[in-house]
């Protein structure tokens, strides 16, 4: 099989960027990615390296938040790997049971690494990341409104 070790070892900065977009792709919905893909223009042909499949991830926690690991429980995950004729490989790993989501994430992961499609796709990712950030800010603002502002009541004469 074609594995990533055939490619030149990416710089750590490249890895950081890839980690970031993979996180954004995982948090987006399949519908959003479907629409975003349409904006990316003509695309290369991809074939499956590993067909979309559903499985589980055992989620771990830490005792006392910072101590030894323990198994909390499982969550569903979908994954998919694709490659194109140039040997460009993309992987998708997303929470939930939407195979199409995993496939789209894999296609985007491959495109984002390519020279010709990279820049267009990065804009798409930036938009999605922005939307995710706004949603989180909105939620945080609602939480902030429930913050307790203590005031001390002075009792007695002095």
């Amino acid at each position: 099989m074609q594995s990533d070790r055939n490619m030149p070892l990416p710089e750590s900065r490249e890895i950081e960027r890839r980690k970031q977009w993979m996180g954004v792709l995982a948090r987006a919905t399949a519908t959003q990615l479907e629409a975003a893909l349409a904006e990316c223009g003509p695309l290369p042909e991809f074939e499956y390296l590993r067909r979309p499949e559903i499985g589980m991830v055992m989620v771990r926690g830490r005792a006392d938040a910072k101590g030894d690991q323990f198994n909390l429980g499982e969550m569903t995950v979908s994954r998919c790997s694709v490659k194109n004729a140039d040997g460009l490989v993309g992987h998708g790993y997303v929470a939930g049971r939407n195979k199409r989501h995993a496939e789209l994430a894999a296609v985007f992961d491959a495109l984002l690494q390519s020279f010709e499609h990279g820049s267009v796709c990065r804009e798409v990712i930036a938009t999605l990341a922005g939307e995710q950030h706004v949603a989180r800010k909105k939620r945080n603002a609602k939480t902030a409104a429930t913050k307790v502002n203590f005031f001390t009541m002075v009792r007695g004469e002095d």
């Binding site: 099989m1 594995s3 070790r5 390296l49 590993r50 790997s81």
Partner: peptide, 10 residues
């Protein structure tokens, strides 16, 4: 090494 990589992946 290819055999190991193949089986690890699939």
């Amino acid at each position: 090494e290819d055999v190991a990589t193949h089986l690890k992946f699939y």
